[in-house]
Nucleic acid binder design. Structure first.
Lengths: 213, 213
DNA sequence: CTCCATAAGAAACAGTATGTCTCTAATGGA
DNA sequence: TCCATTAGAGACATACTGTTTCTTATGGAG
């Protein structure tokens, strides 16, 4: 702390300080106040250091998100999805994993990411493509378990396939907080299972055939 | 266009020019480039004029959204919801109306609104409260029609109640474009109707009682 | 038709952020 | 121990904010 004390960080130690500073700013002042100027001040480094590594605060934030959510999850999401004995518990387990991701990042950052994506058309397809592909693979895995166990599941269409993720995202963004245990359970029981196990009931509703899993 | 030609607009004429300028900027340069400085330049007016009326570009945008969507819809959403003869067609009609709102505003603005809400916790409850209240009223109306017609509808819980809106919002934000006819139809047939007309099927799934409409 | 309160529009201000470019000196591996 | 790498300080022009001051066009009241 003495006046002339020079202690110059570099590499990972420096990056960690920058991450911490950015997270602190997002938490205390909001994402919209995340500027390189402030990050540099809080992290006690120079702005040039930041500009050398990231083009915009958005890119820094995206890196932090990936970093923290990978750390919180402890592995690839698709590998963590497991056969827990029933479609119901598998879906609950999936939502539990997603919950972990949401909790580790926080709603504010998630919103910011969606917003920035919408502002910068170039990066939508990349991000969206990745996520959509991964999510489809996860649901194929889960519905595959169900089929293998002999559970009767209706032919699942593309939009039904993304439903768990749509529901979680919608609830997360709308309520601005992670989904609690009870809500997750109700989403499974009141919406997902009825959709996945629906029997044609009425006489005037064409079931509108669509590609299965 | 002559050098000394003075033509000073005021009142509604001026406001219209400002709306047009803002819409043009959002369309051509994106919401994040919507600054009072640019709006003033495009609208050929002074910044002070803008600051006198709106605190931030967000407030201006919100006003434009309300203005255009009210104009596109031609009335209050809840009054336009009508008994069209079946739950299925009522739901399709509702989605059609929402489609109109989405089309008139565009995804970019919608994203921006959500983003700003998440940055500014103060204005979340107001906006959200209004919308949630209105949506619940709409669904109660539609499900009331179904009940009156004698259609068998399962007790609908709060989360099932907001499902049409959650689905529309999720699809709109995710695909960054309004929902086309076919998608709307499939959302109704493959997801909404199965949920609203579900019969208890499995033996190990507690249907988890919840308050009805 | 004239007067004049109202409000448009121009301009200046300090403060903050961007993006780029210097320069120096600390760091740590060869 | 040397030296390439890179942290960190600072300068620069540009842009946006939020506010204030000033001039003057406008259109309704009289």
């Amino acid at each position: 702390m003495a006046a002339g004390t020079t202690s110059r960080r570099r590499g990972d130690r420096l990056i960690e300080s920058i991450y911490d500073a950015a997270i602190e700013i997002i938490r205390d002042e909001g994402y919209s106040n995340l500027t390189f100027l402030r990050v540099a001040r809080v992290a006690r480094t120079g702005r040039a250091v930041l500009y050398r590594r990231w083009a915009t605060p958005f890119d820094l934030t995206r890196e932090i998100m990936e970093h923290t959510s990978a750390q919180a999850l402890g592995g690839d999401l698709i590998d963590l999805v497991a056969d827990t004995g029933s479609l119901r518990t598998d879906l609950l387990h999936l939502m539990d994993l997603y919950q972990t991701i949401f909790t580790s990042t926080g709603p504010e950052i998630m919103n910011a990411m969606l917003f920035e994506m919408s502002q910068n058309n170039a990066r939508i397809p990349v991000i969206k493509g990745d996520i959509a592909f991964r999510n489809a693979a996860i649901m194929e895995k889960i519905l595959g378990y169900a089929a293998a166990r002999g559970e009767s599941v209706t032919p699942v269409t593309d939009i039904a396939m993304t439903l768990p993720f749509d529901l979680m995202r919608a609830n997360f963004l709308w309520n601005q907080r992670p989904l609690d245990e009870d809500l997750r359970q109700r989403l499974v029981d009141e919406i997902l299972l009825p959709v996945y196990t629906a029997r044609p009931v009425s006489e005037d509703q064409p079931p509108h055939g669509a590609p299965g899993a």
